[in-house]
Design a binder for these strands. Structure first.
Length: 406
RNA sequence: GCUGGGGUAGUGAAGCGGUCAAACACAUCAGACUGUAAAUCUGCCGGCAUAUGCCUUCGGGGGUUCGAAUCCCUCCCCCAGCACCA
């Protein structure tokens, strides 16, 4: 499949300055995309863009990943204590490393270059910047930006000058990469369109060059109409410290029918034929959740590796599909305790709190009273003390393990 | 800098001296029904406690009062308008 067809079929086409997207099939480009190092991990929203980029690279385009070290440093205008300035730099370094590692993982062996805009911004003088870049920006245009408009005015949360300047910095990034790396295309999220356009203008005005933008659509949950990837506990992260492999797998497994098709196309590398077969099989017997199961497995494999994917798949089997808990061996129990929260607290209520299934003793007790808690498949209504390895279940799909493995 | 409006639970938003752990809505969590789905109905929804009980909250600090989220002072932050500068 050609890149343009692939992008179209998978739903990655949104808005672009390219006259004809088929240009991507014939003209290899060097493109970049920017990421914000404000966290040390991607969320599923960025993950979608990463997958899209993967298709770009595998079709012969050269990729440059820009980590916003400079933008990250001014990212929190609230921190005006000068002493604290140093800490964010270390943190940004750490976040940068984490994010780059994740991209490597998602891209498999595909090559890409990493740059940090701190490299070129650290030596730039404010006056020079205003003279060379600032004068090319029209205030009216800047003020017209959606993100500015939504922050100013009634009900807006306000915007600082630093944050407002993001546009200029991002615009300059593009210009700089155009000059130094021959970058002629920027890939971005749809919310970054305005900022990206700044770069295109700048390149035209200053260098007389032509550059383009490709923005990816926001992945929407069709049922709620909201941005996809948020869940009860907040965002779903690729980092297993933030979202355990088990929860990650469960997140995809619980995806609704209306969305599976989209998610399979966006988040997996399965071919058109495979996905279509999967979907028709799934529609014939929706209650079997075939498509969701495959989706969860494929994505977990991609992000956390095959071994972990198989492990959580097996655990899910035990937990949901009638596999017997008693039959698990000690080593399997150990494996299980890696994927779901576990504790050695033998009293039930403290154990629920310790594992985070309940936020307080009161909540734990309430859950118990409402019949939400069961151990080893038996519903409970009051606190008790367990005597051996015990699987505790809250609601339908939240578990923890009381183990005595130490 | 001036003038006016505002900062209340995860979010939005009532309350405007006692009856406020704080209406209402949404979100979350749980129960029923299901396919670990959606929709719907029900309950919970600051902490501790079996509890009619106690404790801690209404931007920060201080004060008035028997009593403050509610009044006063002060500081911080947001919004709007005006002025100033350019």
């Amino acid at each position: 499949m050609k890149l343009s067809e692939e992008l179209q079929w998978r739903g990655f086409v949104h808005q672009t300055t390219l006259g004809n997207i088929a240009e991507l099939d014939t003209e290899p480009r060097t493109f970049y995309w920017g990421v914000d190092p404000s966290a040390d991990s991607m969320q599923v929203g960025n993950f979608a863009i990463a997958m899209m980029i993967r298709h770009f690279i595998s079709h012969g385009h050269k990729a440059v990943l820009l980590v916003g070290g400079a933008t990250g440093m001014i990212g929190d205008p609230g921190g005006k204590d000068e002493e604290r300035q140093l800490k964010p730099i270390e943190e940004i370094e750490k976040n940068k490393a984490g994010i780059v590692a994740q991209y490597k993982r998602v891209f498999g062996d595909l090559p890409f270059t990493v740059v940090d805009n701190y490299e070129w911004f650290k030596d730039i003088s404010y006056l020079n910047f205003l003279r060379d870049v600032g004068k090319h920006f029209s205030m009216t245009q800047l003020l017209d930006r959606d993100f500015v408009q939504s922050r100013i005015g009634e009900g807006g949360s306000g915007i600082s000058y630093a944050e407002f300047s993001y546009s200029l910095i991002q615009g300059y990034d593009f210009l700089h990469l155009f000059r130094t790396h021959g970058v002629t295309l920027q890939v971005c999220g749809s919310d970054q369109w305005g900022n990206s356009i700044s770069g295109v203008d700048l390149i035209r005005k200053i260098e007389g060059g032509e550059a383009h933008i490709w923005s990816a659509p926001l992945v929407i949950n069709k049922v709620t109409g909201k941005k996809f990837g948020k869940t009860e506990g907040g965002a779903v992260w690729l980092d297993e410290q933030k979202t355990s492999v088990f929860s990650f797998y469960q997140f995809w497994l619980n995806v609704d029918d209306a969305g599976v098709a989209d998610y399979l196309k966006i988040y997996t590398l399965l071919t058109k034929g495979e996905i279509e077969a999967l979907l028709s099989e799934s529609q014939a017997a929706p209650h079997k959740r075939i498509a969701q199961k495959r989706l969860a497995f494929e994505i977990t494999k991609l992000v956390h590796g095959q071994a972990r994917a198989l492990a959580v798949q097996k655990i899910t089997d035990v937990l949901f599909d009638g596999g017997s808990f008693d039959s698990m061996t000690t080593s399997e129990l150990q494996e299980l305790s890696k994927e779901i929260p576990s504790t050695s607290e033998s009293r039930l209520i403290p154990a629920l709190v310790a594992t985070g299934l309940a936020t307080s003793n009161g909540e734990a007790r309430r859950l118990l009273q409402s019949g939400a808690i069961s151990i080893n498949g038996q519903k409970l209504v009051e606190d008790m003390t367990v005597s051996g390895p015990t699987l505790v279940k809250k609601g339908k799909n939240t578990f923890c393990l009381i183990s005595f493995l130490g």
